[in-house]
Structures are given as C-alpha cells and as structure tokens.
Simulated assay, not measured.
Amino acid sequence: MTDALSLVDDWGPEKIVVVSHRRTGMKGVLVIDNTARGVGKGGTRMSPHVTVGEVARLARVMTWKWASVDLFYGGAKAGIVADPTSPDKEAVLRAFARALSNEVPREYVMGLDMGLTENDAAVIQDELGDRGAAVGTPEHLGGVAYDKLGVTGYGVAEATDAAARYLGLPLGGSRVALQGFGAVGHAAAARFAELGATVVAVSTAKGALHEPNGLDVQALLAAREEHGDDFVNRHPEGTVLPAGQELTVDCDVLVPAALQDVISDETAHRIKAKLVVEGANLPTSPQAQEILAQRGIAVLPDFVANAGGVVAAAFAMDARYSGFRPHTPTIFQTISDRLRANAVVVMEEAKHRGTTPHIAGRGLAEERVRTAMQSKGRVPR
C-alpha cells in the first residue's frame, strides 16, 4: 500500500484526494502535482488496477509535459478504480465527478485517458453543470475530438521525424515498429506512412504482427476498424508473434505506444532499434534508459514525444466556455511546430550535457517550473 506522504518531494504533489461512494462502489484518486504554471490539467483514467502511486507518477509526467512544451497549465492526473466496460460505468463516473466538485474545475480540469471516451467527458460536464469541468467532449458539443483527429499519434510521428533527422537517420525508408495500435499507435502509423517510413511491426493486446518488408498501413487501419484488436490474428500480411516481441524485432525506430513499464532492463539489452520514441507514458525504466544510452540507442522522452495531446488540450482549455470550435488546422500546425522544435532542443541539450534525453529534457522543464515557483514565492528566490 502506498504511503501518500512518501510521494511528496520538492515539486509536489500539492494535493492528493482519495474519494469513494458506497452505493456505486466508486473508488478514485486525484493527484494535483504542481500548479506553479497554471491550473492542474491531466487525463482521468478508469481501470480496475488504478493505484495512488501510479496516478502520482502520471501527474508528475504532466508537470514536465506542460513545462516542456511551454504551455501554462500544471501537472495533475486522476484515476477511478473500476472496469470501463461495466454497465455501471456512468453511475461510477458521476459519483466520482460529484466527489471532486470542490476541486473541479477550480483546481483541476478533467480530461480523457485510458478507459474513458468523449461521451464520458460530456457526462462529467453534465453532472457538474459546468462546460469547464472537462475537455475532450465530442465535436458536436464543441470539443476537440482527440482520438478521432489522432493528435497524439500525429505528434509522436512529427517528433520522431525531427529526432531521427537530428541523428542522421531520415525517416523516409526507415523501419518502424509500433507497440500498440490504439488511439495513439494507429494515428502514428498513418502519419509515419505519410512521411515515407516503413512500418514493419504493430501490436495489440491480442498479439503482434511482423513483416520485415513492411506492412500496408491503410490495410491495417481497415482491419482494425473491422476486427478491433484481434485484427493482428486475422490479417493476411505478416507473421503473428506473441505480444511483446514487437519490441525486439529488427528495426530502425521503436515506438512503445501502449502501456507504461514495458521496457525492462532485460528488454533494453535486446532492442535492435537505433531510436526509441516513447509514445506511451513511462514505458521505459530509468535503468533501461541507462542501458539503452550505453548501447548508443537514443530515447526521445514521453513528455516530449507524446505531447501532441496536451497541445490539443490547451486549445480545448481555451475553448471550454467559447461558442466557437478551435480551428483544427491550427491545432495540427502548432503540434508539428512545437514538438519538432522541442525534440531537437532536447536531443541537443542531451549531447551538450553528455547525458540522456530524459535527464536533459527534464532539466529544461524543471528550470521552467522552478522559475514559476520562485516568482510566486513557493520556494526561496
């Protein structure tokens, strides 16, 4: 069991709120990590396995992610211990929103993460009677349709292209392996194909599909639409592998875009890619990052690579009370500009400091957060 007080360090968390509701069985947690640069903003996830420690780690990632792309919101995250496929999902979600009515939206604005959909964001707004309570609502309610637009996956591919070029590894013709073909992975694959990369492996919870000569991404997207995660076992192309083996296939670029903690020390020794791009949050351990660095494999951190979602969320935050929808082409252009520039800055800083991109990138983000904390008198000037 996590001792919440043991999670506190020089950066946060500022507040941990654990809530429950007897009738629905709802249990959940909100972690507001650091609001020196603005109100807490981060996704809300629903899973039977949510823990306080997990949500706190993700809230910290959000602190660095907002600071890394130089947008003025604070790190926060929420989690609900429940099965997102349960028929009681809406009742649990409404109970969770009510329990946090003191914090939402004054201190924290809910968003989407694993297990929640655009309609769930609309339910939160409805329950609290406030359009500002959540972002990620359906487009017909004025929201930015993150998953439909594929903003996070698009940003992952844009950041990958910039980092690969910096390393002298043009993405055109490079072989890319993707772990995960959900909201992030499938959009990244589509953009990789547009940029001329060859996608040699993809995976879902049902297994992995590998074709050294390249998979037809459009055919994969159609198969996913028809069969869901099981498309990897039904597709006529490629060889089916057990889930997890896509991480160690022969490729130039590896993109873990599914779950956290998937690249262990042991896996890091077997990765064949020249560049690892963290499409998911926290997919590599610090020890694995060191091993990859020692092997000459660059790793583009999650708070840089998958920040397309937070850039889009910033537009959604601005539009919460507006009668106008955000301009979609502007969102995509801003994601491309910010993530490409940030990827190069972090890679250059890592080279200059002689350290890993994680440490270099976090150092830049920490500097911005520390400056904000000093200006507000939260730490000594």
Rank of each mutant, 00 (worst) to 15 (best):
Met1Asn: 08
Asp3Val: 14
Gly12Pro: 03
Pro13Ile: 05
Pro13Met: 06
Ile16Lys: 05
Ile16Gln: 01
Arg23His: 11
Val31Trp: 01
Ile32Thr: 03
Gly38Cys: 12
Val39Phe: 00
Gly40Ile: 10
Lys41Cys: 14
Gly42Ser: 09
Thr44Phe: 00
Glu54Gly: 05
Arg57Phe: 02
Val61Asn: 08
Val61Tyr: 03
Thr63Lys: 03
Trp64Asn: 00
Ser68Trp: 05
Asp70Asn: 14
Asp70Lys: 13
Tyr73Val: 06
Ala78Gln: 05
Asp83Thr: 01
Ser86Val: 09
Lys89Arg: 15
Ala91Asn: 10
Leu93Thr: 06
Leu100Gln: 05
Asn102Ser: 15
Glu103Arg: 02
Leu112Val: 10
Leu112Gln: 04
Met114Lys: 03
Met114Phe: 13
Gly115Met: 09
Asp120Ser: 06
Ala121Gly: 13
Val123Trp: 07
Glu127Arg: 02
Glu139Asp: 11
Gly153Thr: 06
Tyr154Asp: 01
Ala159Leu: 08
Ala162Glu: 04
Arg165Asp: 14
Tyr166Thr: 06
Leu167Lys: 12
Leu171Cys: 04
Leu178His: 08
Gln179Ile: 00
Ala188Phe: 03
Ala189Asn: 12
Arg191Gly: 02
Ala193Lys: 10
Glu194Phe: 05
Leu195Gln: 12
Thr198Tyr: 00
Ala201His: 05
Ser203Cys: 12
Ala205Phe: 01
Gly207Asn: 06
Ala208Val: 09
His210Glu: 13
Pro212Gly: 07
Gln218Asp: 15
Ala219Pro: 00
Leu220Ser: 03
Ala222Ile: 08
Ala223Ile: 07
Gly228Cys: 12
Gly238Phe: 00
Gly238Lys: 02
Val240Gly: 02
Pro242Asp: 05
Gln245Ala: 04
Val249Trp: 04
Asp250Gln: 12
Val255Leu: 10
Ala258Thr: 01
Glu266Lys: 13
Glu266Gln: 15
Ala273Ile: 08
Val276Tyr: 02
Gly279Asn: 03
Val299Ser: 04
Phe303Glu: 01
Gly308Ile: 11
Gly309Asp: 07
Phe315Gln: 07
Arg320Val: 15
Tyr321Met: 13
Arg325Met: 13
Gln333Trp: 11
Val344His: 13
Glu348Ile: 04
Glu348Asp: 14
His352Arg: 15
Arg353Tyr: 08
Thr355Leu: 05
Ala360Ile: 04
Glu367Pro: 02
Glu367Arg: 14
Val369Lys: 03
Gln374His: 05
Gln374Arg: 15
Lys376Arg: 15
Pro380Arg: 09
Pro380Cys: 13
Pro380Ala: 13
